[in-house]
């Protein structure tokens, strides 16, 4: 399945300034163990880019909505990762 990944703030410098297009294996609908979550995607990216996991600090979003790390992803989803805000 095709996924689009977006990084914000300092995560752009750590991962990618531009959105990434990922192709990952479709889960087997009859086997819950093959479901892919946002956390799975994030941890794979951390490994690929040599970044430390910051699950307790970073907020995931899914299709422009705040999401949970264990939310499953499906094809054409847009996943985003927010570092802590630093406005003002």
């Amino acid at each position: 399945m095709k996924l689009s990944i977006e990084f914000y703030g300092r995560l752009k410098a750590q991962f990618s300034t531009k959105p990434l297009e990922l192709n990952v294996a479709e889960p087997d609908k009859t086997d819950r163990n093959t479901i892919i979550t946002i956390e799975n995607i994030y941890l794979d990216l951390c490994q690929s880019y040599g970044c430390k996991s910051e699950i307790k600090i970073i907020k995931p979003i899914l299709n422009d909505t705040f999401a949970e790390w264990n939310d499953p992803v499906k094809t054409n989803d847009v996943i985003g990762f927010f570092p802590p805000a630093s406005g003002g």
């Binding site: 914000y8 703030g9 802590p84 805000a85 630093s86």
Partner: peptide, 23 residues
């Protein structure tokens, strides 16, 4: 707003470098 609104600040310095700022 500073703590929760998804806005991020990147500073550009006199020495030509830049850096994302923590909250």
């Amino acid at each position: 707003t500073k703590a929760n609104v998804p806005i991020w600040k990147n500073e550009f310095y006199e020495n030509g470098e830049s850096g994302w700022v923590e909250a």
